[in-house]
Design a protein around this nucleic acid. Structure first.
Ligand SMILES: [Zn+2]
Ligand SMILES: [Zn+2]
Ligand SMILES: [Zn+2]
Ligand SMILES: [Zn+2]
Ligand SMILES: [Zn+2]
Ligand SMILES: [Zn+2]
Length: 632
DNA sequence: GAGTTTGAAACT
DNA sequence: CAGTTTCAAACTC
């Protein structure tokens, strides 16, 4: 029927369109609409990407985009090629590139959304993974309806098993019409369904209740039989808990749900994956569940309060909890190679955070190392990572040293009690600055909201540094993106990226090491102090009874010294107080760095997005109650 | 791989 | 907006 016509038309148009296609594939219309609101078009991610890609990959002026794989790019893997070309919007590409780490391709995600965000991503293509994109199997939609994942993701079919496919360059004009139609039906049709972040209100602060990171499915799911624990559920598929936007029945994917947890973290998540997709997930829901961070930690901590819900969806408002988890993926941190970070770091941190850290030590440590400290440590590490990224982004590669210097913003304080005299109030605080840390900064005061969030980490699943790093990345990404304008993605992306990661890792590990060293020092100091006291006491007694002098013992100390000497900053240990400050003790002047830099960018989300989102967020309109729930 | 189940998208 | 149909993925066997 009309198909034919369309087709013919398409063909006709083709030649003309081709050229344009190359750059555009994306759904322009959409942009226009969307963008219009925002105005920010220029950068459209896609456009950029595309351009970039072309440049990198190939000049490819040719009509048929697809075919040739860009030689250059190709190096890594074959797969890449087609996509690039084909997918105009590149969404996929990008994502692919970015995602690389992920074991499974997250899936098609379109990035539009990010108009704001994606810049960094661009990394690219070559980089790594070939990720394959998902292939559809459409038979009746011609791949011109959102039923088609390719179409929905904003990419041309490439290597799909579809029948009668019009989602390709050859039928671009028809395709465009379909795009337009889809947009008419739903202006957000090609935007990510899952809001990644948190959009924190632009106004600035995030409500306490709401975490900044809550990722939600914009429209929510409407599952009735899957309990939202199967991939039929978009929320589950996107690895996010159901939210108030959902109207599911008998939901088991609520935030605190045990089921959810078990599924998510349990086994599967294992180490493998963390993936994330980058920035935007486009509309496609992220397919592939991601594993949460891979670090597995397992248990440990207590579970939080969570309200488990029972049945019907109740979506708690408290988003906070999962923060991390979703943060990851949702956030998409782009890059970051998972591996390293999590694995390496996690364990240590976890241990600490958990508090599980060995009991033996606990008594001694208790005074010195407190949960809060750990949180701060985490923040510090994240901040450091962020900082690295930031500097990296700026292209200014500052020597790490410099960075260190820089980090003066955030402070971590650890209080220690000295057994000594003041015993009671012996707390002393030392603060350390670290780079700006995102989350903390978010709220001027670190503690409050984070507190809850972090508790979770600590208690529940401690966030591993790796995770932190991820989070960080996310943020970074965000801001990078935001700054996108300012920073044109540097091409070297791939290399840069790895470099970046290496740096981040280095910094994080280094700092963590420092932290541990300090901890050691503090402990030793404390220990020695205790010993001395004891000794003195004994001496006194002894004196009374008998002799006077003796030798003082100081065992551990020696060790400590050595340890301290190891490297890091010598800490000035006050005799009485021990501080763990990772670096220098300071007064608290707090300077929170505003993390403006960081946060801001995010805010920018495209107007539509934000607007829509907000509405959702603001109130749960969903009044409903779908009381009847399932009949069955 | 065929068949079933499921819930989003499309349609009315 | 609700109800129904269409659709393709997810899941099952
Ligand atoms: Zn298709
Ligand atoms: Zn396809
Ligand atoms: Zn197709
Ligand atoms: Zn659901
Ligand atoms: Zn849901
Ligand atoms: Zn649900």
């Amino acid at each position: 029927m009309d198909q034919v016509d369309a087709e013919s038309r398409a063909v006709a148009v083709d030649s003309s369109s081709r050229t344009k296609l190359a750059r555009q594939l994306d759904f322009t219309p959409m942009y226009n609409k969307v963008a219009a609101a925002n105005v920010v078009l220029p950068n459209h991610p896609q456009a950029r990407l595309q351009l970039k890609i072309e440049a990198q990959v190939k000049p490819k002026p040719q009509p048929q985009l697809q075919l040739q794989p860009p030689p250059a790019v190709q190096g890594v893997r074959p797969i890449v090629r087609p996509e690039l070309q084909t997918r105009p919007q590149s969404v996929p590409v990008v994502q692919r590139a970015l995602l690389h780490p992920v074991p499974r391709p997250p899936y098609p995600i379109a990035q539009f959304e990010s108009a704001q965000a994606q810049p960094n991503i661009k990394v690219e293509v070559k980089d790594v993974t070939p990720k394959k994109q998902k292939q559809c199997n459409c038979k009746n939609s011609k791949c011109l309806k959102l039923y088609c994942e390719c179409f929905a993701a904003g990419v041309h079919c490439d290597g799909c098993n579809c029948t009668n496919c019009y989602n390709n360059i050859e039928h671009e004009s028809v395709r465009q019409e379909a795009v337009t139609a889809a947009l008419d039906r739903n202006p957000n049709a090609f935007r990510p369904k899952i809001a990644n972040s948190p959009h924190k209100p632009r106004n600035g602060r995030v409500e306490p209740g709401e975490s900044e990171l809550a990722a939600k499915h914009n429209k929510g799911c409407h599952c009735k039989k899957s309990g939202c624990l199967k991939k039929y559920c978009e929320c589950f598929q996107g690895n996010i808990p159901c939210s108030e936007n959902c109207r599911c029945v008998d939901c088991k994917n609520c935030e605190g749900s045990e089921e959810r947890r078990s599924l998510c973290y349990g086994d599967n998540m294992a180490p493998t994956i963390y993936y994330q997709q980058q920035t935007t997930t486009a509309n496609a829901v992220v397919k592939e569940a991601v594993g949460p961070y891979g670090y597995k930690i397992t248990q440990v901590s207590r579970k939080r309060k969570n309200p488990e819900q029972t049945t019907v969806h109740f979506h708690p408002i408290q988003p906070i909890g999962q923060f991390q988890q979703r943060a990851d993926h949702v956030a998409e941190q782009h890059k970051l190679d998972n591996d390293l970070k999590p694995s390496a770091l996690s364990s240590p941190v976890n241990a600490l955070s958990l508090g599980s850290s060995k009991i033996t030590v606990s008594s001694l440590m208790a005074d010195i190392l407190r949960p809060q400290n750990i949180r701060e440590l985490c923040s510090h590490l994240v901040g450091a990572s962020a900082e690295v990224l930031k500097s990296h982004t700026e292209n200014i590669v500052k020597p790490l040293n410099q960075m260190e210097v820089t980090r003066a913003d955030h402070k971590v304080t650890i209080s220690t009690q000295t057994s000594n005299a003041n015993a009671g109030d012996g707390n002393v605080e030392t603060s350390v600055n670290t780079g700006n840390f995102i989350s903390n900064q978010a709220n001027g005061e670190c503690t409050s909201d984070i507190g809850s969030t972090r508790d979770e980490f600590l208690n529940e699943r401690p966030i591993s540094p790796g995770t932190l790093a991820l989070m960080c990345d996310e943020n970074d990404a965000a801001f990078t993106l935001g700054s996108e304008n300012g920073v044109p993605g540097h091409d070297t992306a791939s290399t840069t990226n790895s470099e970046l990661h290496a740096k981040q890792e280095k910094v994080v590990l280094t700092r963590f090491r420092d932290f541990l060293n300090h901890l050691i020092v503090c402990l030793s100091v404390k220990e020695s102090t205790l010993i001395n006291e004891k000794e003195q006491a004994q001496q006194v007694r002894a004196v009374n009874s008998i002799k006077t002098s003796n030798n003082r013992t100081q065992l551990p100390i020696s060790n400590h010294n050595s340890s301290s000497s190891n490297g890091r900053p010598p800490l000035p240990l006050p005799t009485t107080n021990y501080s763990l400050g990772m670096i220098r003790p300071l007064v608290h002047t707090s300077n929170h760095i505003t993390k403006n830099g960081i946060t801001r960018p995010q805010l920018t989300n495209s107007a539509t997005n934000s607007s829509s989102r907000q509405s959702n967020v603001g109130l749960p309109t969903h009044s409903a109650v779908r009381s009847q729930e399932e009949s069955k």
